[in-house]
Design a protein around this nucleic acid. Structure first.
Lengths: 235, 235
DNA sequence: CTCACTTTGTGCACCGGTTCACAAAAGGAC
DNA sequence: GTCCTTTTGTGAACCGGTGCACAAAGTGAG
């Protein structure tokens, strides 16, 4: 029998909502710092750059934490969102691949700020192993499984070259890791139940280039020209 | 009167499709390197990690470039996608903010590989200005407008601290830049017509944490426990 | 207590995108 | 040419998410 909580909050928050919660959280933290006690959905929506109806619907998935006629209590909402996202506990993160990007990630303040702790840096290059970066000793990739187990790492960040990524992914999955943030430009294949998020810098630029080109086209030729298409070129 | 091209290709490729084209392109390049001449939607879909029907529909938005019973010509498709994305021309990119992340981006090979050229590095810190990184001289942020104009920069990458990002965005928009890739953890506000893409490392981790927590919950308590909610705490 | 005002929570219509499933097209064997 | 096989291109149902618009719920003044 399913236990029904006060509001319509049987487990199952839309993915799109989850992706926006961190955004709200950031906006709320800014407001808390400025000493605001309550905030309306309208104001918070503006700060987070979304539509206010969407924001209210998002928050309603967590429960009914607002007060009609008043708004939301900033601190309370911060607490609820943090808890829902799992940021009230501390997550040990391992970064594999200590090249330029890995180094940047290790030093990135935004990680530590919210419940995330870089617990290990690993690399295959003997030149890099042993270096001290962001207060951590870079360990050899051979130690991968041992390190993950010993330090209770539950999230792995892949910043390796493309060719190494799948291999590392297989190994970390084998030790029980089910959350991977992948910066390598490859499509990883992992078993059911493992969550992968992919950040691909070059793809983002390509999407921008597409729109940029489009804007440029519109400026000059417009839809009427477009003889850019040499009529069914075959090769 | 709207000019109709052979296929149903009146300008207007779905955003979701545009976001996947770079993925197909990468898979196709791999195949071209391995000497494959043609590929079926099924094989390409697997390589790109998507459903084959979706892939076919995506490609059909560019035109009818496949051959029934055979598949798609790899080289031809690479050319068509590249052209659609605007990668047949070369784009000058400026990176603003040469901290750890900016440095990593400047050295990131994936940029140069496809039509993108890092044409300028800018920073406000006099300690950093003058450094040589990835073959480029770091220039002072005061030169921002001049550099953008002189080198024909059309895409700006923001890797500044959060507080500086909006200010820099305003300035680059004022000089006519309409494409920004933002790594700073802030919601930028820009005029209509300016495209912004945002990459937020900490948000990606938070989303992973959410799912990770959920998986952990399911393991232990399951839906029946959940007394995690201390019944309408008010404050 | 009543009235006026504010702001939440949500029903509902709508929309972009996904997926299935199949007709249409192409190639090859004979 | 006819038949069989393969694979594309797409119509149509479906699904998750968005946004409008409003009733419900709360505050505060008089």
């Amino acid at each position: 029998m399913i236990r029904r909580l006060s509001q319509a909050r049987e487990r199952g928050i839309p993915e799109a909502t989850v992706a926006r919660l961190p955004l709200y959280l950031r906006a709320l933290n800014g407001m808390a710092e400025r000493g605001l006690a309550t905030v309306s959905s309208e104001d918070l929506a503006v700060a987070a750059g979304v539509n206010s109806a969407k924001l209210r619907k998002d928050l309603s998935h967590l429960g009914s934490y607002g007060t009609r006629g008043v708004g939301y209590d900033v601190e309370y909402l911060i607490y609820q969102i943090s808890r829902e996202l799992g940021l009230t506990q501390d997550w040990a993160v391992a970064i594999v691949g200590v090249g330029n990007l890995g180094r940047a990630l290790a030093n990135y303040g935004g990680f530590v700020s919210r419940g995330f702790r870089v617990a290990a840096l690993l690399d295959a290059d003997p030149e890099v192993v042993g270096d001290h970066i962001a207060g951590l000793n870079v360990e050899h990739i051979d130690e991968l499984e041992a390190v993950i187990r010993r330090r209770g790492v539950s999230i792995v960040v892949l910043a390796t070259p493309a060719l190494a990524a799948q291999q590392v992914a297989d190994r970390v999955v084998a030790v029980g890791v089910t959350s991977i943030l992948n910066f390598a430009p490859v499509v990883l294949s992992v078993p059911e139940g493992v969550d992968i998020r992919k950040v691909d810098l070059s793809i983002e630029l390509q999407i921008l280039a597409f729109h940029e080109q489009r804007k440029a086209d519109r400026m000059s030729g417009g839809p009427a020209m477009a003889e850019e298409w040499p009529e069914a070129v075959d090769l």
